[in-house]
């Protein structure tokens, strides 16, 4: 059983005539009977997803469109009560955001680069830990279920509870991390800071990996369940060792799972707001100034919602681009194979 079941029969076909939902009167039995049976059959899947599509529009698309609209306005505190009175900024907000010689653009670029580095490291480490965990726990042994449950705890904990605990652990004077590293292991002469300065970047990655690797673990574990034992047996008969089996059987078979997993992890990590916000509060250290917090700062805290929206739109465009390139690249390679 392969996981990817993207195309369903019928999903690609179009209805014969421009149908859409019939008028509300169509609920009445007489009219419903008059709609040709063929049309009804073809329209059914569309009608079934219609509520979901409408909800999706309402919950996701409408705010996004409003956000895009806001990005063209000079929306400051003077117009909060009545957005329609806000003067148009044209492309001004965008120009400021991408003017890398100016203070706003420069700090946005800095924040963007920090976020890229952070995302690459976090996704890489999470995936690595996830695959290690999943592969090591593939065979059954005593206590596997307990260990598995234990590994999933960070993912099951509410973000706030988990991250605020980390922020206590990482405090310089009273945190457990420094107590262990400095007082017991004597690794540092001076107590290092973990929540400010350059170490804050490391702390952020550690906390984020701690939060997101169980998800990678969970998904990869599910993916491993789908690999037939026959393949391993065949490989073993051919004399393949553990490492060879991993490279020749496990990883290729996990390919479709990995494709989705890495993308999802990337998007979640890139956009992560909760972790840095709970860990550092409203003003993140310069070295760990993730873009989500940065945009929040630019809009909410300095009350310039137009500028914040413009940055969000830029971020959205970037993520769309990355996603598109990624999907094209990975599916082409798959069809090549």
């Amino acid at each position: 059983m392969v996981v990817s079941t993207t195309s369903r029969p019928g999903a690609g076909r179009r209805p014969a005539s421009p149908g859409g939902p019939p008028p509300p009167g169509g609920l009445r039995r007489g009219i419903a009977d008059r709609v040709p049976a063929r049309l009804r059959r073809l329209a059914l899947p569309y009608l079934l997803i219609l509520p979901a599509v409408l909800l999706e529009l309402l919950v996701h698309l409408v705010p996004m469109v409003i956000g895009i609209g806001m990005s063209f306005l000079k929306l400051t505190q003077f117009f909060l009560r009545n957005w329609s009175a806000a003067p148009s900024a044209g492309l001004g907000n965008y120009r400021v955001a991408v003017d890398f010689d100016g203070a706003v653009g420069r700090s946005l670029l800095h924040s963007f680069l920090v976020t890229v580095a952070f995302t690459v490291l976090t996704v890489g480490l999470s995936w690595l830990l996830g695959i290690c965990g999943a592969v090591l726990m593939q065979g059954s042994f005593r206590g596997r279920a307990v260990l598995r449950a234990l590994f999933l705890v960070p993912y099951a904990l509410p973000v706030y509870a988990g991250v605020i605990t980390w922020s206590f652990l990482l405090q310089r004077d009273s945190g457990l991390v420094n107590h262990v590293l400095v007082d017991q292991l004597h690794l540092f002469g001076e107590r290092p800071f973990w929540l400010i300065g350059s170490n804050s970047f490391v702390s952020l990655i550690v906390v984020c990996v701690w939060r997101s690797w169980p998800f990678a673990f969970l998904v990869l574990m599910a993916g491993l369940q789908n690999i037939s034992d026959d393949l391993y047996e065949a490989a073993a008969i051919d004399g393949a060792g553990w490492g060879r089996r991993l490279r020749a059987v496990t990883l290729p078979m996990l390919r479709p799972v990995n494709q989705v997993l890495v993308l999802v992890l990337f998007l979640w990590t890139f956009n992560d707001f909760n972790t840095p916000y709970v860990l550092f509060g409203k003003s993140a250290p310069h070295e760990a100034d993730l873009i989500s917090i940065h945009i929040y700062q630019s809009s909410f805290v300095t009350w310039n919602f137009g500028s914040g929206s413009a940055m969000s739109v830029l971020l959205l465009l970037f993520l769309l681009l990355v996603t598109a390139v990624y999907l094209v690249a990975t599916s082409r390679r798959r069809s090549d194979a």
Binding site: P24, L27, A32, R40, L44, L48, P51, L55
Partner: peptide, 21 residues
């Protein structure tokens, strides 16, 4: 048998539209 899900879907969409309004 086919009409039931059909009507259900329309009804769902209508309810949704009504609550949105």
């Amino acid at each position: 048998r086919r009409r039931k899900p059909y009507l259900l879907a329309v009804a769902g969409a209508l309810v949704l539209a009504a609550t949105a309004c």
